[in-house]
C-alpha cells in the first residue's frame, strides 16, 4: 500500500514548510519530534526531498534569443500603452453613467413624494366630485318647487335671484350664468315677464358645472342667453354642450404624460452605444494581443 495515502493533507503542508525552511524555530523543533516518532512521516519527507532535488536539478534552458526591446519596439509599446485601457475605461464609465441614470429614474419614479404641481388638479377634481354630489341632492330637492328666471333686461348680467325664501345662487363667468332654486317672485320689474318654471331635468348638472369651473381653459357655451326684447315672454335655456369633462382617469393620464424622463432618451442611447462600441474595441484589442 502506498504510504503517501496515509499522510494527511495537513501533514503534507507541514512537510513542505519544513522542507522549504518556512517554519518557525518552535514549530520546527515540534515537527522534528514528530518525525522521529513517525516512520511514515519520515519516509514522506524523504520522498519530497528527492522530488525537490529532482526539480532543482532540471537543467537551465538557455534563452533562444535576447528579449530586450529595440527603439522601434519600445515606441510601439508606448503607443499602445494607453489605447487598451482608454477603451476599457470609456466603456466602464459609459456603463456606470447608464446605470446611474436608470437607477436615479427608477428611484425618482417609485420612491419620491408626489409632486403637488401635478397632483393638485386631480385632488381638486376628487373634491369637486364629492361636493357636486351634495349640490345635486340639494338641487333635486329644490327642483320640486317651481323655478323662475327673471329677465332684468341686462344681457350677460347678474344671475338669477331669489326672493321670499331660499334665494337662488347666481354666478357670472363671462357670458355664463347659472341660477338655481329661486323662490316665487312677488314683485315685478318693468318689462319683465315671468318665465316658465324650469323642470328638474333642465337644470344644469352641478357636476358638470363644478368640473368646468375647475378647468379654466375649457370654454363653455352660454347657458342662457339674455332674453331679448323681441323674445320677451320667452326663456331661452341652452343646455351646455356635452363638453369633454376631464375625468379623474384622464387627468391621471395627463399627469403621467407630463412626467418627462430626467435624461433624454437620445442621451441614453448614445451612452449605451458608446459603452457597447468601446467594450467591443477593447475586447478586440485584447484578443488580438
Amino acid at each position: 500500500m502506498n504510504r503517501q495515502a496515509e499522510i494527511s493533507e495537513k501533514d503534507m503542508t507541514l512537510l513542505c514548510e519544513y522542507l522549504d525552511d518556512a517554519m518557525s524555530i518552535k514549530d520546527r523543533a515540534k515537527f522534528e519530534k514528530r518525525l522521529q516518532q513517525s516512520p511514515e512521516l519520515k519516509q514522506a519527507l524523504e520522498d519530497m526531498t528527492a522530488l525537490k532535488q529532482g526539480m532543482r536539478s532540471l537543467p537551465v534552458r538557455k534563452v533562444p534569443h535576447q528579449f530586450t526591446l529595440t527603439r522601434g519596439e519600445a515606441e510601439k509599446a508606448r503607443r499602445g500603452r494607453f489605447l487598451l485601457p482608454s477603451f476599457g475605461w470609456a466603456s466602464v464609465v459609459s456603463m456606470i453613467l447608464l446605470a446611474v441614470i436608470f437607477g436615479s429614474e427608477f428611484i425618482f419614479s417609485n420612491f419620491s413624494a408626489p409632486q403637488p404641481a401635478y397632483e393638485e388638479p386631480v385632488a381638486m377634481m376628487l373634491e369637486n366630485e364629492a361636493a357636486t354630489e351634495s349640490v345635486m341632492k340639494q338641487a333635486e330637492e329644490e327642483a320640486t318647487e317651481p323655478v323662475y328666471l327673471l329677465n332684468w333686461v341686462s344681457v350677460g348680467g347678474k344671475g338669477g335671484g331669489g326672493a321670499g325664501g331660499i334665494g337662488g345662487g347666481g354666478s357670472i363667468t363671462g357670458d355664463f350664468a347659472v341660477g338655481l332654486g329661486g323662490g316665487p317672485v312677488e314683485t315685478y320689474a318693468e318689462d319683465t315677464v315671468l318665465a316658465e318654471p324650469l323642470q328638474a331635468e333642465d337644470l344644469v348638472e352641478p357636476t358638470q358645472t363644478a368640473s368646468i369651473l375647475s378647468e379654466e381653459k375649457i370654454t363653455v357655451e352660454p347657458l342662457i342667453f339674455g332674453v331679448r326684447e323681441d323674445q320677451l315672454g320667452q326663456v331661452i335655456a341652452v343646455q351646455p354642450d356635452e363638453a369633454p369633462v376631464p375625468s379623474v382617469a384622464a387627468s391621471r393620464e395627463v399627469v403621467e404624460a407630463e412626467k418627462e424622463p430626467l435624461i433624454a432618451t437620445n442621451i441614453k442611447l448614445i451612452l449605451a452605444g458608446l459603452a457597447a462600441a468601446c467594450g467591443l474595441i477593447w475586447l478586440l484589442l485584447r484578443f488580438r494581443r
Binding site: E9, T13, L15, C16, M48, K52
Partner: peptide, 10 residues
C-alpha cells in the same frame, strides 16, 4: 500557496 504546493508535490 502552501496548500497548492503540498498538493502539487503529492
Amino acid at each position: 500557496v502552501k496548500s497548492r504546493l503540498a498538493r502539487a508535490r503529492q
